[in-house]
């Protein structure tokens, strides 16, 4: 119950400061549209491959504004007030996460509407992809909580933009990772972003081979990030207070 109360407040807080959401939705929509106009002869830019890329890319914006929300609460002493209340670390993480998930859903639906207008075939896999992107978004949300916990309101978006860059360069959404050198391709395999794209792409195109290793990688990252976020958030609560 406490978690829901907190989530409801966070949701209101986010939608009443709509600039960041508009950005997180419009920019990916624009990219999806514009890259279709270029007609680049590479299968990566086929609509059924590029749309999952845009989904993962947009999740990195979710990281960005989750981190800003968390950092803002910390600077404004609201976290101090909540820190005195009987709220638990896990309830914070859940409360922040639940409030952001509806936005992920809205993002996804809009991306697919545009993609279908641009020629994507509508079938049941679209629905599956949307459903699968929700658990994937948890990694990005918690990453945002983690960043918001260790940064300030000012530096949070700067640090989160690293995630945005990492997604762009290591997920394989803009270029095939086979084209690049060995070291870089290894880095991409170690980071979770390529795996998140593999999963969404696989689901949308109903090609389920080789998904298990991607799922395991994303799962491991998600679990580690959650543990780290809960731990650091609790720690910060009792040490932050200037």
């Amino acid at each position: 119950m406490r978690t829901l109360t907190f989530a409801r407040r966070n949701f209101k807080e986010i939608i009443r400061d709509p600039l960041s959401i508009i950005f997180a939705i419009l920019l990916p929509l624009f990219l999806l549209f514009i890259f279709r106009q270029f007609k680049i002869p590479n299968e990566i830019y086929n609509i059924e491959n590029f749309t999952p890329g845009i989904i993962i890319f947009s999740l990195s914006f979710i990281t960005m504004f989750t981190s800003t929300l968390v950092a803002k609460d910390r600077t404004s002493s609201l976290t101090a007030r909540l820190g005195v209340s009987p709220m638990k670390g896990v309830e914070y993480i859940l409360g922040y996460s639940l409030s952001v998930i509806p936005l992920v859903l809205i993002q996804n639906i809009l991306f697919f509407i545009l993609a279908i207008i641009l020629g994507l075939n509508f079938n049941i896999n679209v629905i599956y992809t949307i459903l699968v992107s929700l658990p994937i978004s948890i990694l990005f949300i918690v990453l945002g909580i983690l960043i918001g916990t260790i940064t300030t309101e000012k530096s949070s978006s700067g640090v989160s933009s690293i995630v945005v860059q990492l997604v762009a360069f290591t997920s394989g959404m803009y270029f095939s990772l086979d084209m690049v050198g060995n070291t870089f391709s290894t880095i991409c395999k170690i980071l979770p972003f390529r795996s998140t794209l593999n999963i969404t792409k696989g689901i949308l195109n109903a090609s389920y081979n080789n998904l298990s290793s991607s799922i395991i990688i994303v799962l491991i990252y998600t679990i580690i990030t959650i543990i780290l976020a809960v731990f650091l958030f609790k720690n910060k609560m009792t040490s932050d207070n200037k």
């Binding site: 907190f6 209101k12 807080e13 404004s76 002493s77 005195v84 209340s85």
Partner: peptide, 29 residues
């Protein structure tokens, strides 16, 4: 925690919530 409360040195309120929503929010917490 159940029996105490604080008004911190810096005002601690949820900025985008109304006054009533702030009270309802903390009542929920």
């Amino acid at each position: 925690k159940e029996i105490i409360n604080i008004s911190p040195q810096e005002t601690a309120i949820a900025p985008n919530l109304t006054v009533l929503e702030n009270l309802e929010f903390m009542a929920g917490i």
